[in-house]
């Protein structure tokens, strides 16, 4: 079972936005949805190695900044070409104002 890692403060992420989180030589993206829920996915687009944290969050979709491919960040599902491969997602919980991710 992977460890729970303290990634950031809950208010480090604006509503309907994303930030980058690097840990253990890997990179992740942590999202805050319009409903104030938090999610975590792999940080790089599955199409080409581009950081999703530089992209745009619209509702429950993250759009890659390079080629406009889209994923549902809640499930990791690839939603729009040129992305075809789903993103890995990771469990998230918020404790005492901190965002914890299990990666």
């Amino acid at each position: 079972m992977a460890d729970w890692i303290d990634a950031c403060a809950a208010d480090d992420i604006d509503e309907e936005d994303v930030i980058r989180f690097d840990h253990g030589g890997r990179t992740f993206a942590i999202y805050r949805s319009p409903e104030d829920a938090y999610y975590c996915t792999d940080g790089l687009c599955t199409h080409e190695q581009v950081h999703l944290a530089d992209g745009l969050v619209m509702d429950h979709v993250i759009e890659c900044p390079k080629h406009n491919g889209q994923f549902d960040y809640r499930t990791g599902e690839a939603k729009r070409a040129p992305v075809c491969v789903n993103l890995a997602t990771y469990p998230v919980r918020v404790e005492g104002g901190r965002v914890m991710v299990q990666v």
Binding site: H47, E48, K66, H67, A81, P82
Partner: peptide
Amino acid sequence: WRWSHARHHT
């Protein structure tokens, strides 16, 4: 051309 243009941007 969607794929062609993705390559053009890469």
